[in-house]
Write a protein that binds this DNA or RNA. Structure first.
Length: 334
DNA sequence: GTTCCACTGGAAGACTAGGTTT
DNA sequence: AAACCTAGTCTTCCAGTGGAAC
């Protein structure tokens, strides 16, 4: 049934992106000065999960590099490279300037200095999930260096601005903005049609099934394509010759549960205990969480560290924090 | 309205793991 | 082998916030 698995994978960038003409042009125009040798400006891209931010960024940068020889581009996933050091290393590595950097004996300053010494063509640096970056100094540095144009991808602008200091904030205020919105049902269906046409044998999926996927994905293209992928696999496993709405409904909850389980498994032990406590007892106040936590593990961390853990769990979308000060409680996200 | 205090989260520094240099 | 790095984690300290109790 599956003819070309690549087009169903996450991170696949199609030759043409659908329903995002305005956003494509907005980003392309913001980056245009770079191709004329003018200093690049920062771009802040906002929008909910699965609204095409990453895909459009990669697409625009790819087109830009086809148009002109004199542009480089590096993509950094800040979720996976959340420290300034790792993110800076990723960029240098991509530029082929990471030789002779020893992970433990080369200070971050040296990495930044090397970025500053970059004398090749100007470089667009896509910082995906930029709000996860711990050292925002790096954004400031990249923004200051004339050879780099940072593109910051975040869900919500406020989450980014909450994390940056005043000097960076004032710089970013003047930057270009490109805002993405959820796809509507018809848009998702046409995106899925494309992927089915490219990736599956002809007639492998019914229109009803595509509509069911689009409906279940609630505007999230990544989720929708994931459903298509899982449904195709499931159909292959069960020797079905076409994907129907029933196939979709069968894989939908399974995909969700799997994602959650993977998230929980990758959690360090102490954070896992905290999640369990909140899951069992929530809504629960932070003090009570700490007391139970201290009972349950040997060698508990301090309450300050636990607070950091809890806010990380909130970042991971595993917990939800309600209230701001004395009324704060945590609940597990269902 | 005032006071209290549980909670937040920034800052600085100690500590650890894991690497290099001598 | 020992001395010496650095990033990353955790602790210590603390000012600020704003519900809750009075």
């Amino acid at each position: 049934m599956i003819r070309d698995a690549r087009v169903l994978r996450e991170g696949f960038v199609p030759r043409e992106v659908r329903h995002r003409e305005g956003e494509v042009n907005g980003l392309a125009n913001a980056l245009r000065p770079l191709t004329r040798g003018d200093p690049g400006e920062a771009v802040v891209i906002t929008g909910p999960a699965g609204s095409g931010k990453t895909c459009v960024s990669r697409y625009v940068v790819d087109r830009l590099r086809e148009e002109t020889l004199d542009v480089e581009a590096q993509y950094v996933n800040c979720w996976r490279n959340h420290t300034g050091y790792r993110a800076a290393y990723r960029v240098l590595e991509g530029l082929g300037k990471a030789v002779e950097i020893h992970r433990q004996s080369t200070p971050l300053d040296e990495l930044v200095a090397r970025l500053g010494a970059h004398d090749g063509p100007p470089c667009v640096v896509i910082l995906d999930e930029a709000d996860q970056l711990e050292a925002m100094d790096l954004v400031y540095d990249l923004h200051s260096l004339s050879g780099f144009a940072p593109v910051l991808i975040v869900n919500r602008e406020e989450e980014l601005f909450a994390r940056v200091d005043d000097r960076l904030r004032s710089r970013l205020r003047g930057s270009h903005r490109v805002a993405f919105d959820r796809y509507d049902l018809d848009e998702l269906v046409s995106i899925l049609e494309d992927r089915a046409r490219w990736g599956l044998v002809e007639g492998a999926v019914t229109d009803d099934a595509l509509a069911a996927m689009a409906d279940a994905a609630a505007g999230d293209a990544r989720l929708a394509i994931g459903l298509l992928r899982n449904a195709a696999r499931d159909a292959e496993d069960r020797d079905l010759d076409r994907i129907t709405p029933e196939t979709v409904h069968a894989v939908e909850p399974q995909g969700r549960a799997e994602l959650r389980r993977k998230n929980l498994e990758s959690l360090p032990p102490h954070q896992h205990v905290l999640y369990e406590i909140v899951d069992e007892r929530g809504p629960i106040a932070p003090g009570a969480v700490y007391d139970r936590y201290a009972d349950r593990v040997e060698d508990p961390r301090t309450d300050r560290t636990v607070r950091t853990y809890l806010s990380k769990l909130v970042d991971y979308d595993l917990l939800e924090a309600r209230g701001t000060t004395r009324d704060r409680t945590y609940v597990a996200v269902s």
